[in-house]
Amino acid sequence: MVWFSYHGGHSGEFCDHASSSLQQVVQAAIDEGFTHYGLSEHCPRYREQDLYPGEERLGIEGLIRAFEGYVIRAFALREEYARHIELLVGFETEKLPPENWLEAMLSLKSAHPFDYVVGSVHDINGRWVDYSPQETSRLAEDLGGTEALQLAYFRSVTDMVEQLRPDIVAHLDLVRKFEPPGFSFSDRVAKEIERLLDAIQAYGGVIDVNCAAFRNGYGPVYPLPQILSRARQMGIPATFGDDSHGVDTVGVGLEQSRQAICAAGYSQISYLTRDHGWQSADIAEVRPRRSV
């Protein structure tokens, strides 16, 4: 049996909006029965205007130092706990700074021997789409409405996917985070989602079935059932992401991710290993290594 997550492993040690130490997060993953667990800390942001509220005390240099500290600690923990769990070390991208984000992400990727990259988009031209309902609403208004925001978001994710080709594409429909229960995308937006799925399929990307939306009360897991079903029809592999930000969220909600993958018609779930790359496991074999 295998139990895994690749988008998450954030810790308060290196992420200002998370909690716990990185070692505590790793120990929690072991306690929760994970066989494979990915650490994918947020990449640094390189402009003052891209700092989250409250990060001003850290500043740009502080974020860069924190990320370098994460890299050193994560690789050390990977070796220290190798007998207990297979840790994979990666990072989560931003499409920032807008003018040269690709150069920044490729430079970061080549600076260290990361096991994988999680491709994430959280902004439109430097304005957050998922920070608060108020900020998202203002952004939608400035862009010409909710549909315009969603079109801009999916076009941006497609651009990220086509240029960066990340190993895992994160929370595919994050832009619907603050939408009401029962929400569905318009036909125009659905066409952009199809284009995004085409781009993922073209290079063999894997999508993150991310339980953070469910866990935090923002509807079903990412992505919505109809998107996940379409991905399955296209042969796009799916994996787990707990999007944990401390020991209290390690693995929490992944059973809902598993159920969503089953409901979409998948018979197997993909998981990443250090020695053999991507592997597939029958859904019946995907569960924690031991009861907790």
Rank of each mutant, 00 (worst) to 15 (best):
A104G: 02
D31E: 15
L77Y: 02
G54M: 13
L51A: 14
E99V: 15
L58N: 04
L106S: 07
L88W: 04
F75A: 07
R83I: 00
Y81L: 01
F91S: 05
G62H: 06
I85C: 05
A82W: 00
F91P: 05
G54Q: 11
R45V: 15
Y37N: 10
S40D: 09
A82R: 03
F67Q: 04
I72W: 00
E79L: 01
R57A: 14
E68W: 04
E48G: 08
L63C: 08
T93I: 11
W101D: 06
L63A: 08
R47I: 13
K95D: 07
S40E: 10
E80N: 00
L58H: 04
M105G: 03
D31N: 09
E55D: 15
L106V: 12
L39T: 04
L58M: 07
L51E: 13
F91W: 06
E79R: 05
R57C: 08
T93E: 06
R78S: 00
N100Q: 10
K95I: 08
Q49K: 14
G69M: 02
E68H: 11
R57L: 10
P98V: 14
P53N: 14
D50K: 05
L106G: 03
L77P: 02
W101V: 11
R78V: 00
L106N: 09
E41T: 07
K95Y: 03
E56I: 10
D50H: 14
I64N: 03
E79Y: 01
Y70D: 02
E68Q: 13
T93P: 08
R65G: 01
P53S: 15
P97R: 08
E32W: 04
E55C: 08
L88G: 03
D50R: 05
C43K: 10
Q49A: 14
L96G: 03
E32F: 06
E92G: 01
E32T: 05
H42Y: 12
G54F: 13
R57G: 06
H36Y: 14
E103W: 15
R65V: 01
E32L: 05
C43N: 10
P44Y: 06
Y37D: 09
P97K: 09
T35N: 12
F75K: 07
L63E: 08
E99P: 12
E32S: 08
P53G: 15
V89F: 01
L96K: 06
E94N: 14
G54N: 11
S107L: 12
L58V: 03
E79W: 01
V71P: 03
I64L: 09
W101L: 12
G90T: 06
Y70G: 02
R65H: 02
E79F: 01
Q49P: 05
I72E: 04
E32Q: 11
F34K: 07
A74F: 00
R57W: 07
P44A: 03
E103P: 12
